[in-house]
Design a binder for these strands. Sequence first.
DNA 1: CTAACATTGTGTATTCTTTACACAGACGAA
DNA 2: TTCGTCTGTGTAAAGAATACACAATGTTAG
Lengths: 254, 254
Amino acid sequence: MNPEILSNKNVLTKDAATGQKDIKTILKELESEDIIGISVDCVIFGFDDNELKVLLIKSDFQQYENKWSLLGDLVNNHEDLDEAAYRVLRERTGMDDVYLEQVKAFGETNRHPAARVVTIAYCSLINIEHHQLKILANELHWHRVTTLSEMAFDHRKILDVCYAWLQKRIQEHPLGFSLLPKKFSLRELQNLYEAILDVKLDRRNFRKKFFSMDLLEDTGELETDVPHRPGKLYRFNYEKYQKKERKKWFGIDF
Amino acid sequence: MNPEILSNKNVLTKDAATGQKDIKTILKELESEDIIGISVDCVIFGFDDNELKVLLIKSDFQQYENKWSLLGDLVNNHEDLDEAAYRVLRERTGMDDVYLEQVKAFGETNRHPAARVVTIAYCSLINIEHHQLKILANELHWHRVTTLSEMAFDHRKILDVCYAWLQKRIQEHPLGFSLLPKKFSLRELQNLYEAILDVKLDRRNFRKKFFSMDLLEDTGELETDVPHRPGKLYRFNYEKYQKKERKKWFGIDF
DNA sequence: CTAACATTGTGTATTCTTTACACAGACGAA
DNA sequence: TTCGTCTGTGTAAAGAATACACAATGTTAG
């Protein structure tokens, strides 16, 4: 199985070099061999300008020319799924120490027009500011999650599932901090939650809630460059969080 | 790629017929072709005798002789992942209208000793009593979840993940009813929750909670064959549940 | 037929959690 | 120095979760 057929990266060149008939021939071969390709797709979220953003590239798969696409690649035979997802992140963003979690496998027979490919969707959260997009091939760009034009393949569906996953997950686990600088103000944190969940929250109750969890450390520093009274900067205490025993009982409710 | 190499069903016979060398040769071929196999594995839960049970077979993969194994199979090239999972269920239990949901993909390179196989784990809930296991090949049997001997492959890990998933999921979604008869007493329902979550619950508060959700219908019938005052039988109103709007806000807590 | 047993069915007081809400103080900008 | 804007704080009220006891019902054993 030739990975180049399926990877987002090389299809166009391949196509130009060999012509469409060749690909069809190869696909027939694949079919007859009863082979299923496996890829990972990363939904990479960032937070900027008080909005949730997602990192996309222009698809260069011919049929989806000019449509936006998630960052993905075929899984190498000798790497774990997680490794493959980390590799995609590293290759595309240069970042290594990133929050990354598997969300769901998408395996409809017709999801990829060229061949049967099952993809494992991963959700990743990175701090936009800490990171400079160095490789801007294929118009790698941040996009607002709320106002998205059409996407390639079933990537819109994957994105929707990952976004819903994030909305739920962020309420139960401390992922949000991956989207913020190490030191952040409570206002930034609240903006983050409000943006992701698309709700307005009461400022005092929000503070009370976080302080009562007792996982934020006062750094003693203050915001700078704000045109008003600066707020205190906090740091999330992961260690303390890890030590906390997880509750198994949330209360039945549906 | 020859599915028989990997499927749980036929390895032994194949092995006996062709000898081990042949398989190794084929595996080499697979390696050199950079192919990854895809399977589904179903964690099928049932509830009986006030205990959570899981349906397992004896693995007939040589290396895991006499170890217990989940029900799974390679995904056919022309079927969706969900379809494959339903097929496994149908083939193994004869049941068709079953609760089934994808939980997670497991794709470590070394999880299958014979080849690279990524498996998508599904969780399924069925009512043991409604169902007679007709095909008892490979010692298909129900096992207590709590006291489990060693399992084949990484199936123990998969089971653990699915069990944890179930514990969380049952508190937020009405899956539990799939494990019970259509008409059930509140005591049965409570036993179910207590067994799955491994907690003791207050009887009055449990009732209060479920009645306040307003999704149980009194059938007007009573339990029979109990050596004490019979309880009322209820039915879960799925329609009403569907109409209910889902809440997006649960409250931040971790 | 009766008594003993086991389990159902029900309400209230208490605690904890969530929500709603307003004003003084700090800093920056002009 | 004043104005504007945001930070930081507490309390009262409503709602949700918990703890807890006793009468009613059917079964079984004597």
